[in-house]
Design a protein around this nucleic acid. Sequence first.
DNA 1: GCTGAAAGAATCCAGAT
DNA 2: ATCTGGATTCTTTCAGC
Lengths: 159, 159
Amino acid sequence: MSESVTLDPVDWRILAILQDDASITNKALADRVGLPTSSCHERVRRLRAAGVISGVKAVVDPAAVGRGLQAFIAIRLRPHRRDLVEVFTAAVLALPETLALYNVSGPEDFFLHVAVSDSADLQRIIMDQLATRPEVGHAQTHLIFDRPLTAAVRPRTSG
Amino acid sequence: MSESVTLDPVDWRILAILQDDASITNKALADRVGLPTSSCHERVRRLRAAGVISGVKAVVDPAAVGRGLQAFIAIRLRPHRRDLVEVFTAAVLALPETLALYNVSGPEDFFLHVAVSDSADLQRIIMDQLATRPEVGHAQTHLIFDRPLTAAVRPRTSG
DNA sequence: GCTGAAAGAATCCAGAT
DNA sequence: ATCTGGATTCTTTCAGC
């Protein structure tokens, strides 16, 4: 890939701020990092061009639209149905309750992150959408308590 | 919380677009949903005020800053150390490799999502930062293959 | 919910240090 | 490589319809 992008402390400060709130104006961002607006704008443009900032996204709160319960579903595929991975993936991503799907190593094959309205809704999805699929061997549910805690991508060295 | 927000199909189209790319101009967004700019702007403002759009964030690609390997670490706390949950949570969120921490039900207590540079780096974090903590009983690693597949929050009814 | 207007900001681009 | 200043477009707010 690219990789060899070198970021100085000012770049990291910009990234910290934009990962928290990208709707900040360039002027306010420039003030907070101590740069003129043109230089600040140029830094952000470069971070985007380098792929460090891969996108800017609105975050929708599932609870605000009636999906107040989240869960991980750890899924094992049937060993002789591994050729159906793409079919499985497409079907799962098409579910409106799906937030993310992770193909993982270990005893489980996939971690499916969903947001549902309640436990009955969750059961309905597991029973009707997952357990009925021929490639699905086993599914174990882990309810998510409270809210997921997320963190920004940060430097290892300084701040 | 609030919940009783009713969203019409145009709201959902706006949410779909902004969850994909919130750096679109209001003018372009208005064109795509077929609204005048003032009405479109007002809709977005309302979605924010209602908490449906909880924020706008820059997405940083961990691979572009040398963190090309992601994993879930399923963690079990020691039964008699459950009072240390907040200490554990704070310590884990302070790690620069942490992307998210989920408190879950089931045999595991937490799913920790990390982005690291390589497997040696992952081993170092598990050995030095997790296994050494007195409240940590067991940690099982699940490497994430490819890229996580993420999906927008979508309506259940129509589109 | 739409139109139009006005102040401020973003965005781009010359040119200077 | 970073800054200044200016031109154009867009955002954002606020009247009034």
